[in-house]
């Protein structure tokens, strides 16, 4: 295998890492008003992701940075062409990050209610936005020969991409609910589990539809394999959840996500960003890649950096592995 192909795979993995980790923590944010019936319960929800959400979000930065380094043309064209969705993602992430940190800093119901709104919006919008951008990326954008977008600012908002937006948000919602059933205790845990079981058939439908659409439009024969396996994984995950095996359900959904990412990026390959105007304008693993030297340097960095990241991020989850319930929430102490 050659370096550009390896880097295509690494970028797919970075997106997977992002969708997996921040997916469920978006889900927690979306469910804040649904599962958190009072202030203490809302604090339980927020504290399940308190120590980790920032580390999860770095996966987005690294996915974007690695794309910049390994495929500058891809980074440049995608980010400038999908301008508005990315701007909304940015605005939402700004609000969300600040909201977690500032929400508990003033003891006032109004203050907390406002930040809760920011968390909810700040969790829906980036999930939708990232879903939109990634699926637009698979279906293509109207790019000219230099890789610049031709046409309106809303070129990214085509219906297949909108389906992708709902697909990612729906998955995040279900994964978040399962995560909460795994990380909380008491009544919330049961509510989270039954909610996951109730909404999953509807919320996961867009993802299935997206995969089928991608397969029929852009897919190869082999991408049918991960697609089918993804469906199987979803079904198994939900069956395990029914019998109360929350950990297995969480892992099963993670595997389904991984197989979905394989299907999407598999269907994209060897393009990295197709042009809908002219196949000759499409950015490919070949014509958008950095030089072998740069890819080589980045490979060494990734080879040593990534295992370390996995180890210490994994350790964080281990340190904060205990389930949280309303009994664990200390009283508010602020000036």
């Amino acid at each position: 295998m050659d370096l550009p192909v390896i880097w295509f795979v690494i970028i797919a993995l970075l997106w997977l890492g992002y969708l997996f980790l921040e997916g469920f923590d978006f889900g927690v944010g979306m469910l804040l008003p649904v599962l958190g019936r009072d202030e203490t319960e809302r604090r339980v929800l927020i504290n399940t992701i308190g120590p980790v959400w920032d580390g999860n979000e770095v996966w987005l930065l690294v996915a974007a940075g690695a794309t910049f380094a390994a495929f500058p043309g891809w980074y440049a064209s995608l980010f400038s062409a999908a301008y508005l969705p990315l701007l909304f993602v940015l605005l939402a992430l700004i609000g969300r990050g600040v909201a977690f940190e500032y929400r508990g800093k003033v003891d006032s119901p109004r203050w907390r209610r406002n930040w809760d709104r920011v968390i909810v919006i700040g969790s829906w919008v980036p999930a939708l936005g990232v879903g939109l951008v990634l699926s637009t990326n698979v279906f293509g954008l109207p790019l000219d020969a230099r890789g610049d977008r031709v046409g309106s600012a809303f070129a990214a908002f085509q219906w297949p991409a909108l389906l992708g937006a709902v697909a990612v948000a729906g998955f995040a919602l279900v994964h978040g609910a399962v995560f909460l059933s795994l990380k909380t205790d008491g009544e919330i845990r049961h509510r989270a589990r039954s909610l996951a079981l109730r909404v999953a058939p509807v919320a996961l439908l867009p993802l299935v539809a997206l995969l089928v659409l991608v397969q029929s439009r852009e897919g190869f024969t082999w991408t049918l394999v991960p697609l089918m396996l993804a469906l199987v994984a979803v079904v198994i995950a939900l069956l395990r959840l029914r019998v109360g095996r929350e950990g297995q359900a969480f892992a099963g959904l993670g595997i389904a996500l991984a197989l979905s990412v394989v299907t999407l990026f598999g269907a994209l390959f060897p393009d990295v960003l197709p042009s809908t105007l002219d196949v000759a304008n499409s950015l490919t693993v070949r014509n958008a890649a950095s030089s072998p030297y740069t890819l080589g340097v980045m490979s060494w960095v990734a080879l040593f950096g990534t295992p370390a990241v996995l180890v210490y991020q994994g350790w964080t989850y281990w340190v904060f592995r205990k389930r949280i319930s309303t009994a664990h929430i200390p009283p508010v102490h602020v000036p």
Binding site: G65, A66, A69, P72, Y75, A76, V301, G305
Partner: peptide
Amino acid sequence: GDVFGAPLAMEGLL
């Protein structure tokens, strides 16, 4: 991008 992306990606990862 061939030059400038590398330190940015390293900043993220490391």
